[in-house]
Design a protein around this nucleic acid. Structure first.
Lengths: 174, 174
DNA sequence: GTCTATATAGGGATAGAC
DNA sequence: GTCTATCCCTATATAGAC
């Protein structure tokens, strides 16, 4: 899926890469949909675990920013988003995963913003959390197709604002 | 592509929807890759034209925000991003399109920020342009899979900042 | 320009031997 | 658990009639 897209992730290709025969795929997964779902769940669980660990880091928000920036993750995310457009089961799983991710990010952002005395009404943590995660993903997505225009500038801008949230300092303006 | 993903956009399906026979597709497009490329180019040209028109609007940045938010566009964009992962021709076309879009957005943002007396070094227009476009796309992408958590809050936050850029007023903080 | 028909390839999935 | 063999379907693409 990562290298050639979901359409190339066929039972035969997968079996070949695993060094087994095609029929064996259907021994473990009744249908290809089940296989895709398991791949999604496994990846999601790994990502969620990483994110929960990030919550205990010195700089939780930067840790979440780094995780969300991972190009491997952004590429697969795009593939699953495309898959979700026409496979309901993938769609609902992706949705529940996205919501759990957002909850974790929001918790981290809330914690840090509170510690920094930021006005939580003016800057709702859930909005800031989404901002951070989606900007990271966008940079990854664009870099994948070779677009880098404005990346340096945006990265610098984000870094400056992340710095404001890395240590308890007053009067942060978002 | 919009309804069922690029993998379902086969010569047969396309012919059926067009009310013609499958072979006719190959009369107009030598290969499916050529067809995908033409769809991308046509959509890109339309979008670019809309964006250039937006530059002359009363509130150019909000106009660009609206265009980038269009769910039809975000869905197709995701499909093409996924396609680009394994089709070089799509990838390079998507890249050149993304860069032209960014240039237009940057021009609009530069113009408005200058009129508002915003510090262009502290807030590079290209970064703000990317921010606006990608947030809009992210909201569209997530809405497509049914995720809406934090959307209202983020939308309000964006609206507040867009308002700062809609009329020439001093002391904008981004 | 649009069609029918077909070549060739590969897909998902199952049956049944070992 | 892993294999071989196979069914059936659909894909891209081409040939050639009209």
């Amino acid at each position: 899926m990562h290298d050639e897209g979901y359409a190339a992730a066929t039972s035969r290709q997968i079996a070949a890469r695993a060094g087994v025969k095609q029929a064996l795929v259907y021994y473990y997964f009744p249908t290809m949909d089940d296989l895709f779902l398991e791949v999604l769940k496994a990846g999601a669980d790994t990502a969620l675990a990483q994110m929960r660990t990030a919550l205990t880091a010195d700089d939780p928000i930067r840790a979440l920013w780094t995780i969300s920036s991972d190009p491997r993750r952004t590429v697969l995310n795009t593939e699953f988003m495309a898959l979700a457009n026409h496979r309901k089961a993938i769609g609902s799983e992706l949705k529940s995963y996205a919501e759990r991710v957002r909850d974790i990010e929001t918790a981290a952002v809330t914690m840090v913003m509170r510690a920094n005395g930021v006005d939580l009404n003016a800057y709702p943590p859930v909005a800031i959390a989404m901002l951070i995660a989606q900007i990271a993903r966008s940079l990854g997505n664009e870099a994948t197709v070779g677009v880098t225009e404005g990346h340096e500038e945006l990265r610098a801008l984000v870094e400056r604002h992340l710095a404001l949230l890395s240590a308890p300092t007053p009067s942060v303006r978002g």
